[in-house]
């Protein structure tokens, strides 16, 4: 039931977000039409952070309580996290190319920081598959999930300090409040829609994994 409601909510929100991004919101005067990617890029970055926060919390709870449920949540969230981080890493350069003239700029803190984040969570997956037993893999992945998350603020800080102001990242614009109210509204709706999508996907992934485990247990019983 909850899943049905969430599904419809996501669908409706996504439709509204699409309408707003392509019809409602005015075109940015300097950057032009490309600027609309912004409404996809910011939610992707946000979801990357959100999903890894869930990985972090799930990992702690798994290590403390040793209940598989938390590992399943952390693992499912990490899968979504890597998808959204990848999306941010693809969409970001598509936005950057026409506006900055380059695909990638090391000097803008958010780019390398996101890339490092991507590598850390790749390690989260790999360590699981390298472990001999599944339970050990879950434990190791949880440790990487915690240590990796703790690293994020230092990565952000060092990258910010490291940047040589060459291009302005649109993120800064949001916080300075230099955004048209229509644009802010569109962005908010878009973020909401993507967050609902994340919740829906997480729910589906967790229940799928539970079903997998149930089938495996049944198979074992019948052996």
């Amino acid at each position: 039931m909850a899943r049905k409601i969430l599904l419809w909510l996501t669908l409706v929100l996504m439709m509204i977000a699409l309408y707003m991004v392509f019809v409602y919101v005015p075109t940015e005067k300097e950057m032009g039409i490309v600027q609309r990617i912004f409404y996809l890029m910011v939610p992707a970055g946000w979801l990357a952070m959100l999903s890894f926060t869930i990985v972090f919390l799930g990992s702690i709870l798994y290590l403390v309580k040793r209940v598989d449920k938390w590992d399943i949540i952390a693992r499912s969230s990490s899968e979504l996290g890597i998808v959204f981080t990848t999306m941010a890493l693809i969409v970001g350069p598509i936005w950057a190319k026409p506006i900055w003239g380059v695909w990638w700029d090391w000097g803008t803190p958010r780019l390398p920081a996101t890339l490092i984040l991507w590598f850390i969570y790749l390690a989260y997956f790999m360590v699981r598959s390298f472990a001999a037993e599944e339970s050990r893999g879950a434990r190791f992945a949880a440790v990487v999930g915690i240590v990796g998350f703790v690293d994020i603020p230092i990565i952000a800080l060092s990258n910010t300090l490291w940047q040589r102001e060459q291009f302005q990242h649109p993120g800064a614009l949001v916080f300075q409040g230099g955004l048209d109210p229509k644009m802010t509204l569109t962005l908010m709706v878009s973020i909401f829609a993507f967050t609902a999508l994340y919740c829906l996907l997480l729910l589906l992934r967790v229940s799928l994994r539970n079903a997998e485990i149930e089938i495996r247990d049944l198979k074992e019983l019948s052996d």
Binding site: I116, F119, I120, L122, V127, F130, G148, I155, N159
Partner: peptide, 18 residues
């Protein structure tokens, strides 16, 4: 883990970037 020598750099290097 199974792939001892490979695991450490994959975990270690991204974390020590800052």
């Amino acid at each position: 883990t199974k792939a001892r020598e490979m695991v450490l750099p994959i975990l270690f290097l991204p974390i020590v970037v800052p």
